[in-house]
Amino acid sequence: MKKVVACYKWVIDEADIRVEEKDHSLNFERAKYKISEYDRNAIEAGALLNEEKGCEFLAVTCGPNVEASLKDVLSRGPASISYVNEEWLADVDSSVTSKILAGIIKKIGNVDLVICGEGSSDDYSQQVGPRLAALLGYASVTFVNKLDITEEGIKVERKLEDGVEVLEVKGPAVVTVLPDINKPRIPSLKQILAAKKKPTEKISLKEIGFDINASQPKLKTLSISGTVMERKNMQINTDGLSIKDAALKLVKQLNADGSLA
């Protein structure tokens, strides 16, 4: 039986972040966490390989506060989750993240296929997948929108700027998946209840032989500044103006602005 692992990141929902107009700082007061958008597709891909091909399917994650994610993720298909939960992971770079994930995956052992999202919703560095492949000595196949697993390995289609590459990979691989590979499920009540009984494993850095001093982030954040746009924000159809009249008013306005030429 093939063993499949999905990597997901627990991120701040960027739609909840507000940019302060006065100094362009970011306000996280209302921010909630979510499963990084495209990691839902990675989890779904693993769940489908479990349901359709009988693969064993697990999930892994690392970060600060990841314990809050476990129930939600378990209801989406994995049999268990192995995770590292550490405060200092709040501002680390892809080199640190990939080393920790590689450590967890090695500890799980005999993993045939690792599935990542195309990029994380917050950083969107698109690095962790291929870095993991390099660290594990697995083949790296990115931007995949069709995935099948066979006895020998995997068969995939990847979407690139100039077209599609259909590939066969022998041996273990890390793939990163595009959002169009599948439609992530909305967990049913049964799946949500079943999730409560599934095991999770909290792993310490020591257990995976991760040395904090030897593996500090290589990049330092100097500043983060939000972008604000100055726009007119003018609603055209106010005061009961009909759509037809509003349309005409808008087009006349554009004409006056010289935008129709």
Binding site: S94, S95, P130, A134, T142, F143, L160, K218
Partner: peptide, 22 residues
């Protein structure tokens, strides 16, 4: 930074244990 380029760069970074900025 094409899709191929980003994949290659990240693998290279891991193998050289280097920083990489996307």
């Amino acid at each position: 930074a094409t899709r191929r380029g980003k994949d290659l760069a990240a693998q290279l970074a891991a193998l050289l244990d280097s920083p990489c900025v996307t």
